[in-house]
Every structure is written in C-alpha cells, then in structure tokens.
Simulated assay, not measured.
Amino acid sequence: MKNNLKNTLVIALVAFFTLSFTTVVGDKKEVKTDKSKLVWKGYKVTGSHEGTIEIKSGHLVFDNDKLTGGEFVIDMTTIGATDLEGEYKGKLDGHLKSDDFFGVEKYPTATLVFTKVKASGKNAYDVTGDMTIKGKTHPVKFSISIYGSKATASLKVDRTKYDVRYGSTSFFDDLKDKAIYDEFDLVADLEF
C-alpha cells in the first residue's frame, strides 16, 4: 500500500513538473498556397508596375483563435508582372529576376518570420517580423486581419535594405524620369 501511494505521488509530481515546464505550441494552420495570392506593386517617377509572386509555403499559429505567430517562404523565381503583355512583360520579368533586382538564381526564396504579434482590434493584429530577401534580414511591421479561414495583410518594403538598388535615387544621381522609388507594396490574401 505504501509503495502504491509512493508510486502515485511520484507519477503526480513528474506529471506536474512536466506540464509546468513544457511550452504548449499553438494551433498551426498551413496556408493553402493554391488558394492564396501575393501581389506586389512597385512605383517609378513615370508610373507603376504590379504583379504576383507565389507563396511556396506558409503557416499561421493560433492560441485559442488568437494569432500568435506565422512563417512564410516566397518563391522568388515566380515573380512576374500582370500589367504588361508580350515582349514588355518578358523584359520586365527577366529584369526583376536578374541581379539588378532580386537575383533569383542565387536567391530563389525570400522569407518572413513573425517575431511579435499584438491584437489591435477585433480580428486585427499588428505584426513585427523578420523579412529576408537576397540573404539580408531586416525587421518589417505590418497589419493583418483574419476572418474565419482567411487573412489579409499589407506591407511596405524598402527594397534598398535588401541590396535591391537598381534605379534608386538613394544611390544614383541624375536618374530623372528613370528613377524607381525605394518602397514597394505587398498585399497578401491568404486562405488556410
């Protein structure tokens, strides 16, 4: 009887300490890449261009239906313009993939890892994350809204922080109407 009581007590203590010092990982929801969309828009003195990039993989992490984290891998080899056709589209797509811009042969993916998530309203969150493009990592801040199994996020990215300097007035003089603004927009419509 004493041995059974001792064994029960030891099991209870082990269970208590195990649960006390174990971090419970939230509910990880994989993003459906075939039903999600990532749109970019870049601006220049004489106008703008826009297009898409495919999400290679991604997930959002929830704790009791509250967003707590996320991580995404973007397939940079898929970057392409949607506002041009034919020869002009081919030229822009090729230039974006070249070393002048994203160097996709050497850097085929970009990543975004959430480092801080704070609720900012019903279904809305302010997120800080580490974005890596061309092997360079910098913090970014953005907002994300979640409704059911869908999410929408938008952020501005300063391309020069990631060594994407082509046509930037921050690095080149006398560009005049050939100048391309440093910031571009990303808008994600996600389904998970």
Rank of each mutant, 00 (worst) to 15 (best):
S168C: 02
I180D: 06
S149Y: 04
T52R: 02
M1I: 12
V73H: 09
D185Y: 00
A188N: 03
G80P: 03
G80V: 07
I11E: 02
V39L: 13
D174P: 02
I74N: 09
E54L: 13
E183Q: 15
T109N: 03
V140A: 12
T46C: 08
K116I: 14
I11A: 14
T82S: 15
S57V: 09
V140E: 08
K28W: 05
G69Q: 11
M76F: 06
P139F: 04
V73Y: 07
T22N: 05
S143V: 02
F16M: 09
V45H: 04
H138F: 09
L60W: 08
T77Q: 08
I133W: 13
L38Q: 01
D177F: 01
V157F: 08
T111M: 09
A151R: 02
V73D: 10
V31C: 00
T160M: 09
E105N: 10
T23R: 09
E183M: 12
I11L: 11
L175T: 06
K161F: 05
D83C: 13
L5T: 05
D163F: 04
D83Y: 10
M76R: 10
T18F: 13
W40V: 11
K56Q: 11
G58A: 11
G80R: 14
V61C: 08
G86A: 15
G90H: 06
Y43M: 15
G148V: 02
F142G: 00
G167N: 07
Y147R: 03
S149W: 00
L60K: 11
Y88R: 15
K97H: 03
V45F: 05
T18V: 14
A153I: 10
K32M: 01
H138S: 04
